[in-house]
Design a protein around this nucleic acid. Sequence first.
RNA 1: GGAGGGAUGGCAGAGUGGCCGAAUGCGCCGGAUUUGAAAUCCGGUUUGUCGCAAGGCAACGGGGGUUCGAAUCCCCCUCCCUCCGCCA
Length: 424
Amino acid sequence: MLDPKWVREHPDEVKEAGRKKRMECDQVVDRFLEVDEALRALLPEVESMRARQKSLGREMGSATPDQREALLREQKESKKRIQELGVRERELKQEREDLLLHLPNIPAPEVPEGADDNDNVELRRVGEIRDFGFSPKDHITLGERLGILDFKRAAEMAGTRNYFLKGKAVLLEEAVLRFALDHLIQKGFEPMTVPLLVRDFAMVGTAYFPGGEEQAYRCEKDELNLIGTGEVPLTSYHQGEILALKDLPVRLVARSVCFRREAGTYGKDTKGLYRVHQFQKVEQVILDVADPELSIQRHLEITSNSEELLQAMGLPYRVVNVCGGDLGQPQIQKFDIETWMPSREGYGETHSASRFHDFQTRRLKIRYKDEEGKTRYCYSLNNTVIASPRILIAILENYQEEDGSVTIPEVLRPYCGFDRIERQ
RNA sequence: GGAGGGAUGGCAGAGUGGCCGAAUGCGCCGGAUUUGAAAUCCGGUUUGUCGCAAGGCAACGGGGGUUCGAAUCCCCCUCCCUCCGCCA
């Protein structure tokens, strides 16, 4: 959420942000200005009336019976008026809040112009793309032949975009996740196990709601939502708190299951492990002081944390600077890491590193006291550390052998307990 | 699922109808003292809004009610806690 004061003073910049993000918001901004102005015109009026009401009550004690009569009459009259204005005040506050929740965060100047992911700007490519010397198979063929993936039974049981991992695929997944978790712990991140079902405020606070309701599974009976990412509980962890300066930055990492309805993606990536309803993810979150320059540094930090893992596993990848049109509502800037997937003959998104400034923390009321003792909103950031089974696509396909077996990347072997997967 | 208790400033915690935007303690910030530190003392330490400023005003989980007047009494909602039951 943007600072209402800032929006008041920079409406054109907000509209420009909407344009750059391809989420036009001119009307919302204009309506905000109206409501905001109406509210600020109303407040002094209500407040002075309430003050008058109070002081009349105080005078009552020392008043003569005649005066008392007059005071009473005045109070009776203004009481009705105060109530009416109070209702109006609440309506305006509510509407202003709703409008604010729909405004986009301001993209950084470094965010490239563009309409969709085709316009993302490649920052770097890392790693050699392997020349197989035979025609490589996709992970579905590989996995089914190795007996470690089963899509058919999963679809029967749970619908499309579901899967069973079996045998060594299970252990490989565990290995990758644990390797990723260990890497982040070693970087000073505190590991957490988090709630997967959360209240609405956490979804709103992290800016998935309003707007993302269709992508989330909801348990209506209990008014809880299944998280689509560990970012939600991690970022919300300190909700409502005022942190001490000495406790910043807060670095958290969690492994969690993630659930996504994938509504509106029919026909897109329908096969295999790429786009599924349920997956596991290790996620990193940083909360730090409100300093844009430092936030850029943190952004690089969380990006390279993840790049290091891909490098260690020997997976080729590229990093792209996500363009305005491909950016979500809450981000200031986003880097996607895309890992090479032979079956796609291209890079597939495996990581997404975002910085938000105080867009989330303002909603979540996560603050800290700065050097001068002033209370300010923290800045938040997050990035995927590893997401599985999507990363398994890259591992299985890049490390396949001509006979259909798969070699395990060296760094994962101690975690797996085996060095290859072959047909049983 | 049943019964009860609670929500006040960064934290703890007083306040049960006007004298309360709010005691006290702790923490934090600034200053004094000190060779330095500890201790001690003094001052400051929520947000919004109006105002150039000084300063004013409003807000005690949220909403409604009673009252001339509500942090305080009543009702509803939300959240938290305790006990019992059930349970991995």
